[in-house]
C-alpha cells in the first residue's frame, strides 16, 4: 500500500478547490485514506484504450415559455432573501 500518493498539502489544496473547510484531523485521516484508495485506482492503468463511440443523439425541445415556479416558491428554501432575491455573502 503506497501511503505517499498524496500528502497533506495536496489534500488541503483539493479541499480548497472543492470549497470545503477541513479540520486538521480530517486532513490527516483523508491523507492516509486517499493514499490507499488512489493506489487501488492505479489498477485502471491496465485498462486498454477502448473505442467509446456511443450511440448518442441530442435531445432537443422548443425553447418556449412554460409554467414554472413562482418567485415565492423559488425563494422558499433560501436561508436569507431580500427584495425577492437570494441574499448571499459579499463578493470580496
Amino acid at each position: 500500500m503506497s501511503d505517499n500518493a498524496v500528502d497533506g498539502d495536496e489534500v488541503a489544496h483539493v479541499a480548497d478547490l472543492a470549497r470545503i473547510d477541513l479540520e486538521e484531523a480530517e486532513v490527516e485521516r483523508f491523507t492516509e485514506q486517499f493514499g490507499e484508495i488512489l493506489s487501488a485506482f492505479e489498477a485502471l492503468d491496465e485498462v486498454p484504450e477502448t473505442n467509446r463511440d456511443a450511440d448518442l443523439t441530442n435531445v432537443m425541445r422548443p425553447d418556449e415559455v412554460r409554467e414554472c415556479l413562482s418567485q415565492e416558491e423559488a425563494l422558499r428554501n433560501a436561508p436569507e432573501s431580500e427584495a425577492g432575491q437570494f441574499k448571499g455573502p459579499k463578493v470580496s
Binding site: 480548497d16 479540520e23 455573502p89 459579499k90 463578493v91
Partner: peptide, 16 residues
C-alpha cells in the same frame, strides 16, 4: 450567507 466574509469562505464553511 448575508454577513461578513466572502463567497468562498462562506461556502467552504457551510459545506464543512
Amino acid at each position: 450567507s448575508g454577513g461578513e466574509g466572502n463567497w468562498n469562505e462562506s461556502f467552504a464553511q457551510a459545506r464543512e
